[in-house]
Each structure stands twice: as C-alpha cells, then as structure tokens.
Nucleic acid binder design. Structure first.
Lengths: 260, 260
DNA sequence: CGTAGTATG
DNA sequence: CATACTACG
C-alpha cells in the first residue's frame, strides 16, 4: 500500500469546507493531509473539521484571528506532534506543524508571503535565512522527512507562466529562486514532484485577479520536499484541478513507504 | 399631476443597486426619492448613482466611511439644498438633507438607531430632544414640509408585529413612542401614511435575522411626515414589497401638490 | 443576518 | 479578487 499525502493551501478552511473539501478528502482517503492557511482558531472548528473521515487532526494556529495557521489530518496516530520551530515570531504565525512516525517525519509548512509589503518580504527572507541551517541539520539527524507546504516561491522558469514578467515580483525573485537552488542542490533536499514530473505548466496556485485560473496563468509554489533517502520512494504526483477549494490546488503524491 | 415621493433606507446604496434599485426607480418615475443609510462617499458613487433616470442627485455623507449618509434624487432642480442642521455631531453622521422648492421643503432624514448599544440609544434620545424645538420652529416658519425618512421608531401597537415583546427594545420604547405622540399630537405634524391607511401590518422594516421577512415580523419605522397644511393633499400611500433592495421597503406616496 | 471597512494574501 | 475580522445596525 503506497503512502498517500495531500498538501493544500486552503485559504481559510471554513471557505474550503463550503466548497466541498470534506467530500474530496473522503474520496481521496489519503494517509496524511497537510493544510496551510487554515485561518481559523480551535473554537471555530466544526466537529467535522476536527475529525473528518480521518482519525485525527492537529491544528497549529496563529495568534492573530483569521490569519495563517497550518493543520495535519492523519489516518494513523503519530508518535509525536511538534508545533513550531521554537522561533517566537514565526511560531506566533502558525507556520510549522510536524508529525513523527518512527524515523519518518511529515511537516505542514507555510512560508510567509512577501507580496503584501516590503516589510513582509524582509520577514520572508529572514525565515528563509533561519531555515537554511535548520534544514541542513534536519538531514544530519538520521530521520527521513516529507515537508509539505506552500513555499511561496516558484523555482524555475518552467514553474511559472510568465517568468519574464515576474522576475521582480515576490515569489519569483532571483534571491528566492537561488535559495531553492541551494536547498535542492548543495543541501540535498528533493523536490519530490519533479522526480516524477518534468512537464511545464504544472501550477498549484493562480491569482484571484483577472482570469488567471481560466487562462492557466499559474505558479508552482506548493511542494512536497523530501529527504534524499526518500527520492526513490516517489511513486507519483498529481495536481487536482477538477474542483476549486481555494486559490491553490491540492498536490497529491504517493510514496513507497510503510508507516512503522 | 400628483407629486410622487419615495423614501427608502437602502442599507448601502451600492448593495441596493446590485439588487435592482436603479430599475425600480426608472419604473416608478417619482419626482423625489429620499434615501437613507447610503453608506457611501462621493468618490465611490458610479455615474449611474450620481444621475440615474432623474435629473439631479444630492448626497450628504458621514465622516466615517461606509456609515450612515442620506441622499435625494430629484427630477426638478430645487431652489436650495441644505446639508445638515448645524449640529456638528449630528451632521458628521450625514443624517439630514433638505431640498427647497418655493415654500415647500422635502427632507431626507435618518434618525440614529439605538439598538447597537446603550450609548447609541442615548445619542438617539439626544437627537430626539434637540429635534423637538426645531420641529416646532419649522412649522412656525410659514413653509410646508415633507420629511421623509427612517425614524427608527414604530409609533403604535398597530405599527409593529410583536408590540408586547418589544416594549423594552430600542425602536418601541415608551419614551420613543411618546415622542411621536407629541410630534403628531400637540406639535401638529402629520403621519402622512396614516392619513390614507389605517390598516395593521403595514411594515417598512424587517430584521435580517431569522425568518422575519418570510413571516412578516416587521416594524413601520419609515415615514413621510408632513406639515399640517399638506394633510389634505395626501392622495395615496403604498409599501413596495415585490422586490427587496434592503432590510427596509420603499414607501411610495403621492400628494396633490404642484411644485412651483 | 447583512453591509461595509480593513488587513492580508 | 477573495477570506476573514470588526463595526454597526
């Protein structure tokens, strides 16, 4: 049985729920579902959001109501759950949630967006900078990792519709792309989607403005990033565009991994 | 040709426009249309809102964006337009707009609601108190008046569905009803609607909560209040419930009056 | 409940 | 442009 993992930025779990996310999850029967931008706090969750078709859910919300937040649905109870990275500013925005199964860890990560202001772009750069040594260390710890999430960076020209026109826009800045170059290069993390799919126009996000979705003017900014030891376990990847639950599309991947 | 005047609390003119108010106004061809709670400021008005089927429009908006505000559409250009009563606090909320035609004045008035807090109820009482001598003076000035507006008070038991249960609620408080008793009694103003209609269940407002509209659980809180000299000019009154432009219904009245 | 403003993406 | 919070009614 392959291990099936879905990642999706829901842009408000309550909104996504209204658009049929529950049915989609029930249909897909994934082992793990990593959500970003849940924009909800515990008391606002319905019973079904707390425990849909899956056995268990974990939510890590931001201090600010209606802002950011990540979650993980699991069919198998994990050995351990980690909320945040121990960085007060980052953790107050609810951007990291980790579940451990034996020596495998699965993370739901929501990297800050830099598009709303220069100040937020600097915060994004700051998180990237702090993540680099952390991501190096993670690979040295002898664990296997699957980091799911909205990274808010398209890596290469192939990962965005208008690469030329977006080189000065947050999410496709040279510094941001270089950071992914290092992550997927020297440091050794693996962009799992690209292990099995090298096609163009494999987008996971479309702006709400204009006709971006209709015209498929998109960006691939949602990833499943795995430790090198898992490279050969990647069985398949699929972006679910039949329904729209948010401005992002679910990225569904399967791995030849048995949970311990 | 009778003089046709419509008054309506639009609860956001932009919202009412989306619901077809423009078509309704074009169909009715009223001489004057008095709107309350326009919740808009000048730059946000579309060209059509500034000059629909009628020749001219006048808007008096609140200082606070998206809050309160009154307007008048006219087919005939008035001799004079008066914004506010010269009371800084009241005028900053955009609640009084007056157009003069010879010795006739038509007013669009939006009395404060007291339902949101005790503080707002006190402000409502304060406006009522200051209006009393002013309304007396107006009748002594030798002009004729038609005051159109959302008074936010149901006068008698006949003017509200659940009079028993609402005696402690803002809009049907004994002090508020007594104020209208005095206005329509000793002072001598005329509730023009009641000149031609004595029926029950003639409501102009229904709460958005629950099934108030469906169950006709309403209040008559929108009035055309005329000076005694116009009592005998009232030809007819009609509440337009075929369409819904807001939580209020348009009150359409006709008078045997020729504009000078 | 519903309209609007504001912050954020 | 879309989600959510808040103010106000």
């Amino acid at each position: 049985m392959p291990l099936k993992i879905i990642t999706l930025n829901v842009n408000g779990i309550r909104s996504a729920w209204r658009k049929g996310l529950a049915d989609f999850l029930a249909r897909e029967q994934a082992d793990l579902v990593c959500l970003q931008e849940t924009r909800v706090q515990h008391p606002q969750l319905t019973e079904e959001m707390r425990a849909p078709h899956l056995c268990q859910s974990f939510f890590h919300h931001a201090t600010k109501p209606g802002y950011s937040g990540v979650a993980i649905y699991t069919r198998r109870a994990p050995d351990r759950v980690v909320e945040g990275l121990g960085w007060p500013d980052f953790d107050a925005e609810g951007r990291w949630l980790q579940v451990d199964y034996g020596k495998l860890s699965v993370v739901s990560l929501y990297l800050p967006s830099g598009s709303s202001s220069e100040a937020r772009q600097q915060i994004k750069f700051g998180v990237m900078e702090r993540l680099t040594p952390h991501l190096k260390q993670m690979l040295a710890d002898g664990r296997e990792w699957i980091i799911c999430g909205d990274i808010n960076i398209a890596h290469r020209n192939i990962d965005i519709k208008n690469w030329r026109g977006n080189q000065k826009n947050s999410g496709f800045l040279p510094e941001e792309r270089a950071w992914l170059d290092v992550l997927f290069g020297d440091i050794g993390w693996v962009d799992a989607f690209r292990v099995v799919n090298q096609e163009a126009e494999q987008y996971t996000w479309w702006s709400n403005r204009g006709q971006a979705w209709a015209r498929n003017v998109g960006w691939r900014i949602d990833y499943q990033i795995v430790s090198p030891g898992l490279r050969d376990t990647v069985l398949g990847a699929r972006i679910h565009k039949d329904e729209r639950f948010s401005d992002h599309a679910p990225l569904i991947m399967e791995y030849a991994i048995d949970l311990p």
